[in-house]
Computed example of a mutant assay.
Amino acid sequence: MKSVKHILARKGSNVIAVPAETTVLNVLKLMAEKNVGSVVVTQDGKYIGLMTERDYSRKIILMGKHSDETTAGEIISTNFPMITPQSSVDECMLIMSENNIRYLPVFDIANQLCGIVSMSDVVYETIHSQRETIEQLHSYIQST
């Protein structure tokens, strides 16, 4: 069974991070530039949460706030379920589905952030794993 460490090995564990005092507008520009839907928000260099496109739409646009006056730290999402590199891809998919979230921060044994897993990462890994299984079954059938 594939685990989060397989996803991180494929995509890398680098995350895009911004200080909590960064304006939402600047975070959105960075997200567009990097073509990502979430960024890590830090305070004193430590992870405090994620800012996602969903946070922007629900906590800025719908609340009538201004993205050039509001900071990322004011609208971040926190309290994500805890996953580690050893967590299974199936477990991530279940957590994301049950909690209606698209991103999960990954923490190591020392409780340090070591990557972000998106729903797209989980779907890609599942499809890749199924393809491997199909290829193995084809090889087995052809060898008998």
Rank of each mutant, 00 (worst) to 15 (best):
G64E: 07
S3E: 07
Q112I: 01
A72F: 03
N79Y: 13
N79I: 02
P105E: 08
V15W: 09
K34T: 10
T78Y: 03
S57G: 04
V39H: 04
R131I: 14
L8I: 05
S3Y: 07
I83A: 07
N26V: 00
K59I: 09
T84L: 06
P85N: 10
T22V: 14
Q112S: 06
E125F: 06
S13C: 03
D108P: 11
V122Y: 00
V15P: 13
I95V: 15
S13A: 12
S139D: 12
C114T: 15
V36L: 01
P81T: 06
R131C: 06
K29L: 11
T52N: 00
L8T: 02
I48E: 01
T23I: 12
R131P: 00
I127W: 01
K65H: 14
S38D: 01
R102E: 00
I127V: 13
G45L: 15
Q136W: 03
A17F: 08
G64A: 08
E74N: 13
E91Y: 14
R131T: 13
N111G: 00
F107I: 04
D55M: 03
I60A: 05
H128N: 14
N111V: 02
K5E: 13
T71M: 03
H6S: 08
S118P: 04
H128G: 07
L30A: 04
M82L: 10
A32T: 13
S13L: 02
E91V: 10
V36K: 09
L137M: 14
S129W: 07
T144V: 11
N79M: 08
V36T: 07
I101D: 11
V41W: 10
Y47A: 14
S13P: 01
G12S: 12
F107L: 04
L28R: 12
V18N: 09
T42D: 02
E33A: 15
R54G: 06
L50C: 09
T22C: 05
M31V: 04
G12P: 11
I16V: 13
E53D: 10
P81L: 08
L8D: 03
Y47E: 07
L30P: 05
E132Q: 15
Q142W: 04
M63S: 07
H66S: 13
T70Q: 06
I83Q: 05
I76F: 01
C92S: 09
T22N: 03
S143A: 08
N100P: 00
S129Q: 13
D108Y: 10
N14A: 06
L28C: 13
R10I: 06
G37L: 07
Y103N: 09
T52K: 03
R102C: 02
G64L: 11
Y124P: 01
G115P: 01
L113M: 10
I61Q: 01
T126K: 15
K59E: 12
A110Q: 15
H128K: 14
V117G: 04
K5D: 11
I141C: 04
S120L: 04
K2Q: 12
G73N: 06
G115V: 06
V89Y: 11
V106H: 08
V123H: 07
I116P: 10
Y140W: 06
Y124Q: 11
E74Y: 12
M82C: 05
S77F: 08
G37W: 02
Y56V: 00
V40D: 00
E98Q: 12
Q130R: 14
N35K: 11
R10T: 09
Q142H: 11
V117C: 10
N79P: 06
T71K: 05
D68K: 05
E91G: 04
S87W: 03
T71F: 07
P81G: 06
S67R: 11
